[in-house]
Simulated assay, not measured.
Amino acid sequence: MKLFDAGDVRIHYRVDGPADGAPVVFANSLGTDMRLWDPILPLLPEGLRVIRWDKRGHGLSTVPDGPYSMGALISDCEKLLDHLDVKECVFVGLSIGGMIAQGLAVKRLDLIRAMVLSNTAAKIGNPALWDERIAAVKSGGIESLADAVMERWFSDAFRKTPELELWRNMLVQQADDGYAGCSAAISGTDFYTPTSGLRLPTLGIAGSEDGSTPPDLVRETVDLIPGSQFHLIRRAGHLPCVEQPEEFASVLTAFLKGVGHV
């Protein structure tokens, strides 16, 4: 476990694999920490330099006063990657992590040579929706939203398994202020115009039963980028890397090979 001081926040991060390996950066979703990627990492090709971090307000990173801006989340990642001397990574972002990917690619294309936009969009929801969720968290904590979040995150079949409790526990153990702060960042983000100017290899991944970012929304976003690919994972909700890790890892590995990163 390592902490990086990014100024107003200290970021918990982890690096696995050889120092000279091809860098792959993973950015997780709202309400999760870097363990989101644990199911797929053993299934990826050996020799990669895998970089993960807990965004501000999540996991073992510190919790600055909110609300947060998307620019701050992008800057946190930018500073961390500069600190780790990362160039030309493949960036895999899920949900808010995919928004960070888009914003960072627009700002610092030298850092990213290709990206995977999983269960995300250029714009997610609307301010009224996010205001309602932020108010609920501030009044009743994340616990007050947890059951509804599980319905959006996972398929009916997965919600009947004992593993559901692990992910519900991860959600409710995040800091309320961190969850609300990052919700505000999503609320204020519309990347349709900047993302449409991107020119880099891009793979979109969606879950057929995603209640947060439905497949059509994901496809609409990746279609903004010429030459992009799209893959639908069936029997999965918002976190297909959890529900269908073998398929997620297979699709990601094929993309890494296709862009010459393996």
Score class of each variant (00 low, 15 high):
3 L>W: 13
4 F>V: 01
4 F>N: 00
5 D>V: 08
5 D>C: 09
7 G>E: 08
10 R>N: 11
14 R>K: 15
16 D>P: 00
16 D>E: 13
18 P>A: 06
20 D>S: 13
21 G>N: 00
21 G>P: 00
22 A>V: 01
22 A>T: 09
28 N>E: 14
32 T>N: 06
35 R>F: 11
36 L>S: 03
37 W>K: 06
38 D>I: 05
40 I>T: 07
42 P>I: 08
43 L>V: 10
44 L>Y: 13
47 G>S: 09
49 R>L: 07
50 V>Y: 03
51 I>N: 04
54 D>V: 14
56 R>T: 01
59 G>P: 09
62 T>Q: 03
64 P>Q: 12
67 P>V: 11
70 M>A: 13
70 M>G: 04
71 G>R: 03
71 G>T: 01
75 S>V: 12
76 D>Y: 04
76 D>N: 05
78 E>A: 14
78 E>V: 08
78 E>L: 14
80 L>Y: 01
82 D>H: 05
85 D>P: 00
86 V>E: 07
91 F>E: 01
109 L>T: 10
113 R>N: 03
115 M>G: 07
115 M>D: 06
116 V>G: 07
121 A>R: 09
122 A>R: 01
126 N>W: 05
126 N>E: 11
126 N>H: 10
136 A>V: 10
139 S>Y: 00
141 G>V: 02
144 S>R: 08
148 A>C: 05
148 A>F: 11
148 A>V: 13
149 V>S: 14
152 R>F: 12
153 W>D: 05
154 F>G: 02
155 S>H: 02
160 K>H: 13
160 K>I: 09
160 K>T: 15
166 L>W: 02
168 R>S: 02
170 M>E: 09
170 M>V: 09
172 V>Y: 06
174 Q>M: 15
174 Q>R: 10
187 S>A: 15
188 G>T: 03
188 G>E: 11
191 F>S: 15
194 P>S: 08
197 G>Y: 02
198 L>S: 05
198 L>E: 04
199 R>Y: 10
204 G>C: 12
205 I>Y: 03
206 A>Y: 01
208 S>F: 04
208 S>P: 04
211 G>M: 12
212 S>H: 00
212 S>V: 00
214 P>D: 10
214 P>M: 14
216 D>M: 14
217 L>C: 01
217 L>H: 02
218 V>T: 11
221 T>A: 13
224 L>G: 00
226 P>M: 12
228 S>D: 05
228 S>Y: 06
229 Q>N: 15
233 I>Q: 00
234 R>D: 11
235 R>M: 01
236 A>N: 08
236 A>R: 08
238 H>N: 11
240 P>N: 05
242 V>L: 07
253 T>L: 12
